[in-house]
């Protein structure tokens, strides 16, 4: 009687291999682009030479090698981590709240991080001997504070509480935190440019230090969301029915929100507010493959990394020799995409 595997929830090997090829291509392309262009063959050669037990010799000069490994790759790898994390977090939120437009930024993570960063820039020490950059720490704590407040507010609503209540609470908290942030910004107007630059997002200060800082968070949060992908599919039928299938919807939702928020807070703290990634990438994956989170989560992780590397290339080369903030690039792609998703999701209210 067995007619084979389930149609929509199976991750096809050619989707995965396609996404891996695109990610690898994006990484190489990201490493190529810059004032000194490095041929792709040499980049791959240099990568192979660094593999353990490799007998491959890098054909690059010492200086080019340094540019590649100390400047280009940290930035590209950070872009991969940030893109993967924001995409997986977006997919997780969309599943947890059964809302195609949900995103960690919507729950106050972005506004909280913005406030934290603004305070750090305005009042923090100019230079510090801290292990962690105070700006990064303040943004991280701000993001957690934002979501924490949204959650507390959402759960203080006793009657008629739905998944939408939490999103509305997030919007209220975000407006509040943004108001405080604007106030601080106006009071300390000499920091305006720096705050503004941070909020629009950038990867141009990236080094291996930033990568090391966010990697543990990203690894744990991605692994957690990936492990919960089947549970997200169950939530799609609504809380009551999901409950009768033997799972605890509120517990799943809390777990996903914690993982997605923690990961988002970590990456936002080093990259600034790069918007729309969590909406663009999961929806792009859905359009091409399946609506099942068993497919959407893993592919969003791969495609999200590639997407942000490519967006960063645009940010670097569009008005060469200066850079445009990567948040502007993602917003220019994201806003029309958001409108498209909004139109498509019309009439599937639930």
């Amino acid at each position: 009687m067995n007619r084979g595997r389930p149609p929509g929830v199976s991750l096809r090997w050619w989707w995965v291999s396609g996404a891996i090829i695109v990610l690898f291509g994006a990484i190489v392309a990201g490493a190529m682009v810059g004032p000194i262009s490095i041929p792709p063959g040499d980049i791959v050669g240099s990568m192979l030479a660094r593999l353990p037990f490799s007998r491959f010799e890098s054909g690059l000069s010492e200086r080019t090698e340094a540019i590649l490994w100390e400047i280009r790759f940290p930035r590209v790898i950070l872009a991969v981590l940030v893109g993967s994390m924001l995409s997986a977090a977006g997919a997780g939120y969309q599943g947890a709240f059964r809302n195609p437009l949900a995103d960690p930024y919507l729950l106050g993570a972005g506004a909280g991080a913005g406030l934290g960063a603004t305070i750090a820039i305005a009042y923090g020490p100019a230079t510090s001997g801290w292990v962690v950059d105070p700006l990064v720490l303040a943004a991280f704590l701000g993001a957690l504070l934002g979501v924490g407040m949204a959650y507390a507010l959402g759960y203080s609503v006793r009657s008629g509480r739905t998944a939408l209540t939490l999103i509305l609470a997030g919007v209220a908290v975000a407006s509040f935190l943004t108001a405080i942030q604007t106030y601080v910004q106006q009071r300390e107007s000499d920091t305006l440019r720096e705050v503004y630059g941070w909020i629009l997002g950038s990867l141009n200060t990236a080094g291996w230090g930033e990568v090391r800082l966010v990697l543990p968070y990203v690894a744990v949060c991605l692994a957690g969301i990936f492990a919960a992908r089947r549970l997200l599919d169950i939530l799609a039928v609504g809380d009551t029915e999901a409950g009768t299938l033997g799972v605890a919807p509120s517990r799943i939702r809390l777990g996903i929100v914690v993982l997605a928020t923690l990961g988002t807070a970590a990456v936002v703290s080093v990259s600034g507010l790069i918007g729309f990634v969590g909406i663009i990438v999961p929806h792009f994956v859905r359009m091409l493959t399946s609506v099942s989170y068993r497919v959407v989560v893993p592919l969003s992780i791969l495609v999200g990394g590639a997407f942000l590397v490519l967006a960063d290339i645009v940010a670097r080369v569009a008005i060469n020799p200066s850079e445009i903030p990567i948040g502007v690039v993602t917003a220019m792609i994201g806003a029309p995409f958001f409108a498209l998703v909004l139109r498509r999701s019309k009439g599937v209210s639930s």
Partner: peptide
């Protein structure tokens, strides 16, 4: 009124 998620395949449901 069960929620039938849009795009989900019959078998997967």
């Amino acid at each position: 009124r069960p929620i039938y998620p849009q795009g989900m395949a019959v078998f997967d449901y």
